[in-house]
């Protein structure tokens, strides 16, 4: 009973966020939500199927560009679904390599996809707009436009694109978490974990290892694609630079510091990695240690970068199972 009450309060509070918070927080929140969805996908791949991938940014980009291209031509909801499927297809196409190549080779081979992707996004100007990028058509659902054009006002707060997208983000994150949890506990999820622990054992138990690995790659890419769509919507305009190696590394960091294999952990890692630099920047004016930009010394930007590096090192050394491990440990004590 009290659990349901708690959940209801959380839902109400989350739904009320756009009424209280400034655009900066909504924007940061939307980026974090997009990262959560994509990170869940990578967590399934790395933590559960045991396949290290540095190509995640590539699949996120497929989702983002796929939506931007299709939403001009078909209804946005269909474009969203199609973009997710497209990312899944891209993942399936890469899975022959993923199936053959293992462990660290896979991780570094997938790095190649990010660079190939950058090359394609820069050169396929007809679809991606090249370095100029493309404008992302606003989302709409059964005639309800996710823009500020209708002049909707809720409790005295004008509802623009950010406020409306906030709810879309909440729904997508909830669906992703729910599906991820179920997948981990389902038969396929346990089969994947067996594949991770020992391919030989899996094969002797009648698990089709190659097929399961391919499926894991496909599902993970679809998550990436959905995250990409939300990211594109939050941006309004996407450019190739947003989907480079750094983003791939960020995703891997999210999953590892969140605790590989934990859906909730990946979400926590995503929030940490995405929001930390933005929030540090936000408060840089009130942190006394930091030098004025342009005056030499350690500025907010460098400080946030250093903190990011230090956080990675600290989590890995002192909280081996990531953020998810910390929570579980506490639960066990209580």
């Amino acid at each position: 009973m009290s659990r349901w009450l708690g959940a209801a309060v959380v839902v109400v509070l989350l739904a009320a966020v756009p009424i209280w918070f400034e655009a900066f927080w909504l924007q940061t929140g939307l980026f974090a939500m997009a990262a959560i969805i994509a990170a869940i996908g990578l967590s399934i791949l790395v933590g559960i199927a045991g396949q290290l991938s540095l190509a995640h940014a590539f699949f996120v980009a497929i989702g983002a560009y796929g939506y931007a291209y299709l939403a001009d031509r078909i209804p946005p909801l269909l474009a969203l679904v199609a973009a997710v499927l497209l990312a899944g297809v891209a993942g399936a196409l890469f899975s022959p390599i993923a199936g053959r190549v293992r462990g660290i080779y896979l991780g570094l081979a997938s790095l190649g996809l990010v660079f190939l992707g950058q090359h394609i996004f820069q050169n396929a100007t007809g679809i991606t707009g090249g370095y100029r990028g493309v404008a992302v058509p606003p989302f709409s659902l059964f005639g309800f436009e996710f823009t500020g054009a209708d002049g909707l006002v809720v409790l005295g707060v004008p509802y623009g694109p950010l406020e409306k997208l906030w709810y879309l983000g909440l729904v997508l994150v909830a669906l992703s978490l729910w599906y991820g949890h179920n997948l981990v506990r389902s038969r396929p999820g346990r089969a994947l974990a067996t594949v991770r622990d020992s391919e030989v054992a899996a094969a002797t138990n009648g698990i089709d290892v190659v097929r399961y690995k391919a499926a894991a790659f496909t599902v993970s890419s679809m998550y990436a694609g959905l995250g990409g769509v939300l990211m594109a919507l939050a941006f309004g305009r996407i450019v190739p630079e947003s989907f480079g190696l750094l983003l791939s590394i960020d995703f891997l960091v999210m999953v590892v510091i969140g605790g590989a294999g934990s859906v909730g952990g990946a979400a926590a890692g995503a929030v940490f990695v995405t929001a930390l630099p933005l929030i540090l920047n936000h408060y840089s004016g009130s942190l006394p240690l930091l030098a004025e930009p342009g005056s030499g010394g350690v500025g907010a930007a460098e400080f946030s970068r250093l903190l990011y590096g230090a956080a990675i090192v600290a989590v890995l050394l002192f909280a081996r199972d990531g953020l998810a491990g910390l929570v579980h440990r506490k639960e066990r004590v209580v």
Partner: peptide
Amino acid sequence: YDPQKAVAAYQQ
């Protein structure tokens, strides 16, 4: 030099 950070910074 990251559009994502730039958009958030602008909002701020």
